[in-house]
């Protein structure tokens, strides 16, 4: 197939444009990494572009010299691990129950769940509910209200219905297995692709959740990393938060050493790294997940 010169020009421009898009997407991450690895006072001189000019671990040392960030990091890891494990279990179980065509009240339950995708009571009644449930300043506020979501339930149910052959369940049932045995020994193990989607989806949501720490926690030592970051960014100077506690006065830095901005950059890197580490999996499973979700019954 011969290409016209117009088509060749278009192809070249297209490649160039997409290359520019790639650079624009990746550069902010790269820049903040460079900034976090460069000596803070040196960065203040400006002109930092592509590579650390005076390489230093100093900014990260400041972060880990005090419990604030490591503790928030641990809380984030904990809520992500526990939250997504429980979400996976409950979502899969509930979705499996809803695949049973003769389940009592099935249609009613599905309707009830689906409606919550389109209408919600709003944040204030939600806040009051958390208060009434004694979930304020309680680690459970990270877990229980995040257990289920209508969207994930629907995609998991769709997956079960279209990927688990009924014959598989029936033969197990003839051998005397109970519904739960069928679920744990057959349905769950053969549904790993969708289980991965749910685990990653809830995991990313848990990791990225700044909101519940922001409004349901008043105790600073109970908030996750993302909430700490909101405060650091809002203050625009990290010195009040970290510097004062570490005894380092970051606002008055000398010719060498960390600054408020460089410590902030390092904190952002700490929050980004876990996402980048699971990114290959995210990519692989998320695309399939969103596509399963978009298939209508």
């Amino acid at each position: 197939m011969r290409k016209s010169s117009g088509e060749r020009l278009f192809a070249a421009l297209n490649i160039a444009f997409l290359a520019a898009l790639v650079i624009v997407t990746i550069y902010p991450f790269w820049y903040v990494l460079v900034y976090s690895l460069n000596d803070g006072s040196n960065s203040r001189l400006g002109g930092l572009w592509l590579w650390p000019r005076r390489f230093s671990w100093g900014n990260f040392r400041v972060i880990f010299s005090d419990m604030t960030i490591p503790r928030a990091f641990a809380i984030s890891v904990g809520k992500t691990a526990v939250g997504s494990a429980l979400s996976v279990l409950f979502t899969a179980l509930y979705a499996y129950a809803l695949t049973k065509r003769d389940l009592i009240g099935r249609r009613f339950m599905i309707g009830l769940v689906t409606f919550t995708m389109y209408f919600s009571g709003g944040i204030i009644p939600y806040f009051l509910l958390m208060r009434d449930l004694k979930l304020l300043n309680n680690y459970l506020v990270y877990i229980i209200p995040a257990l289920l979501s209508a969207f994930l339930l629907i995609i998991v149910r769709t997956y079960f219905e279209s990927n688990i052959p009924p014959s598989l369940e029936e033969s197990a049932k003839l051998d005397g297995a109970s519904d739960l045995q069928v679920f744990f020994h057959i349905v769950f193990p053969v549904s790993m692709p969708i289980i991965a989607v749910v685990a990653l989806f809830t995991g990313v949501n848990q990791w990225n959740d700044w909101y519940s720490g922001y409004i349901f926690m008043t105790k600073q030592e109970m908030v996750p990393l993302q909430t700490i970051l909101v405060k650091i960014i809002n203050q625009a100077t990290a010195s009040d938060m970290i510097g004062s506690q570490t005894g380092l006065d970051l606002s008055q830095s000398g010719p060498v050493g960390p600054t408020a901005e460089s410590v902030r950059a390092a904190t952002m890197v700490v929050a980004i790294v876990p996402i980048v580490l699971v990114y290959p999996f995210l990519q692989r499973y998320f695309v399939s997940g969103i596509l399963v979700g978009s298939i209508k019954e």
């Binding site: 409950f90 179980l93 509930y94 129950a97 809803l98 389940l103 009240g105 099935r106 339950m109 009830l112 769940v113 409606f115 919550t116 209408f119 919600s120 009571g121 709003g122 009644p125 939600y126 009051l128 509910l129 209200p145 257990l147 289920l148 209508a150 339930l153």
Partner: peptide, 18 residues
Amino acid sequence: AVVGTLWFVLFGYYPMWG
């Protein structure tokens, strides 16, 4: 299924009522 549905009633519908 009842437990799951109650979760939705509590976290989805109670705030609507609220």
